[in-house]
Design a protein around this nucleic acid. Structure first.
Lengths: 114, 114
DNA sequence: AGATATTGTTTGTATATGCAAATAAATATT
DNA sequence: AATATTTATTTGCATATACAAACAATATCT
């Protein structure tokens, strides 16, 4: 998680921010599904990101859209670097086949859980 | 986690309590290792269990011993039932070989993590 | 024996997360 | 058009967890 610290963002914040950068205007509910978080967790993450002036929320009716600020856009390349670094650092721990089996197992179990 | 609710104990509390029942006098640090939790987390769990009159702590010098109360001993059979029920309920989701691979993978990765 | 380092436990504080209730708006039903 | 249902988001509260600092003993070194 070292890599993220330089950015001053916890990984969960960073992943949400990257989603917002990739899909400006994305809605909280969609983000929650995408990141496998509950909607309330996404709300909390957004509060923090908004405090840090990295996103803005515009609410119209019951829908809310989330947009990245220019400040966030500046961070984008660094964040991409972080994910790359992270991958490189950890993919050596486990080969691709094992990783794939692991993820499959976990997902299957998770899907079947009540 | 249904099974545990009847007992009024969250799984992490229940697992700690079972450890205490199995090894009366066990110390927090040992319990932390055994359950793969940080010592501080064990302290917090013990606070709750003590509130509920399920364990007592006796501190001598820097060491602390944890003992189950009679009330906890009464619960023991029910807790064993819960673990059995739990196992039966979930072992059907995954065969033994897959489970074993999964656990091995996760442990190996975990051990190598900084 | 006195100073120092080590060890085991607890406390303060922070993060991550979710459930259930509260809102608020949109949609469907009558 | 008025009411009821559904949907999206947020809030209140709770749980689970850890790190770092504080404490409190014990062990080690000189």
């Amino acid at each position: 998680m070292e890599s993220w610290k330089k950015l001053g963002l916890a990984p969960s914040h960073a992943y949400l921010l990257m989603l917002v950068l990739d899909e400006p205007g994305v809605q909280p509910g969609y983000a929650a599904e995408e990141l496998q978080l509950s909607p309330s967790t996404v709300t909390r993450l957004l509060e923090k990101l908004e405090e840090k002036k990295l996103v803005v929320r515009t609410t119209e009716g019951k829908l809310t859209n989330i947009y990245p600020t220019p400040k966030a856009k500046e961070l984008y390349p660094q964040m991409k670097n972080c994910t790359r670094e992270f991958q490189e650092k950890y993919q050596s721990l486990i080969n691709e086949e094992e990783a794939s089996r692991l993820v499959k197992s976990i997902n299957r179990i998770n899907d079947q859980l009540p």
